[in-house]
């Protein structure tokens, strides 16, 4: 049996399979389906300093091989998380990590500071790429300057592993990745959702209350792979690959182009047991091809 453990900054994951924020709740929603002890880690729902009700319904539109969402970071706020959710999820047998979102740098910093105090919070994922909030969110992740600023500010208050989640809605994702690496990010995760739109031809109306939303699912996988590949050749920090992963083949593909770990997102909705199947599939693949460790696969694809 090959080694599955991987290193993300100072953090060791027991295997490279984690879950994408916003698709796995707080892990609790999946306890009937998944032994969380089989996962490398869980990235819980995007959390902000203040509670958020999110956007109006309808917030979702199905697309060919994917879906658009416009949830808009609905969450009970970091204080509620610390008081009511953390005491429950800290008992889960995997790394539970929070996706930190915000609309101002001060908001990101205050939220990260609250989480830094928690013993069993080994890492945060800094979400500078949510396309569904009016202010902040993706705006931070679409310019080198603002991505660097927010990363620098949060780095000062969060000494543990800091992963920065990148937006694909940019002309050069490698530049943004280099900028956050330069400000002390321990890793980058990519990609968040693509800004998209869906229209009801009969009613001549948009299908989402917000008109535009974030596209996810297998339809984005080829673009996500290309972006992981580009970032892999631009930075020296580990990459967590995200984008339409449904099975172990998808996960292996992301690892081969440069991801050290992966996040499974939208497909959890279709098969809530997908993550565990992917762990098993990666293990079988390594044995079948005679690899000693999953780390040996990272970035094996060459030009």
């Amino acid at each position: 049996m090959a080694r599955l453990d991987v290193q993300i900054g100072g953090l060791t994951l027991r295997n490279p399979v984690t879950t994408a924020s916003g698709t796995f709740g707080y892990g609790t929603e999946y306890l009937d389906f998944v032994d969380l002890g089989r996962l490398g880690g869980v990235f819980v729902k995007g959390t902000t300093l203040e509670p958020r009700q999110g956007n109006d319904y309808p917030r979702m539109a199905e697309t060919a091989s994917g879906m658009l969402n416009a949830v808009g970071l609905q969450n009970p706020g970091v204080d509620y998380f610390v008081e009511h959710l953390y005491p429950v999820i800290k008992e889960y047998d995997t790394h539970m990590m929070v996706n930190v979102s915000g609309s101002t740098i001060e908001g990101y910093v205050a939220c990260a500071e609250r989480l830094a105090d928690l013993d069993k919070m080994p890492a945060i994922e800094l979400n500078i790429s949510c396309p569904n909030v009016k202010e902040g969110g993706m705006a931070f992740g679409t310019s080198v300057k603002s991505a660097a600023e927010v990363t620098r500010a949060v780095r000062k208050v969060f000494p543990k592993t800091m992963i920065v989640k990148l937006s694909p809605n940019v002309t050069n994702i490698a530049e943004i990745a280099k900028a956050v690496e330069g400000e002390g990010a321990d890793a980058v995760s990519l990609v968040n959702t693509f800004l998209g739109m869906a229209v009801d031809a009969e009613r001549r109306q948009p299908l989402l209350s917000t008109v535009t939303g974030g596209l996810s699912g297998p339809c984005i996988k080829p673009i996500a792979l290309r972006m992981v590949w580009e970032v892999f050749h631009a930075v020296n920090i580990p990459i967590i690959g995200i984008g339409g992963i449904c099975n172990w083949q998808d996960a292996i593909e992301f690892i081969l182009v440069g991801a050290t770990a992966v996040q499974v997102g939208t497909y959890n909705f279709i098969d809530p047991t997908a993550t565990v199947k992917i762990v098993e599939g990666i293990n079988d693949y390594l044995d079948r091809h005679g690899f000693k460790s999953v780390s040996d696969l990272v970035g094996l694809i060459r030009k």
């Binding site: 916003g22 698709t23 796995f24 709740g25 929603e29 999946y30 729902k45 999110g54 319904y57 309808p58 917030r59 979702m60 539109a61 879906m67 969402n69 949830v71 609905q74 939208t266 959890n268 909705f269 809530p272």
Partner: peptide
């Protein structure tokens, strides 16, 4: 209502 997951994860 339109839903994606059906078990409380997606908030759609």
């Amino acid at each position: 209502n339109l839903m994606a997951c059906g078990f409380g994860a997606c908030l759609c």
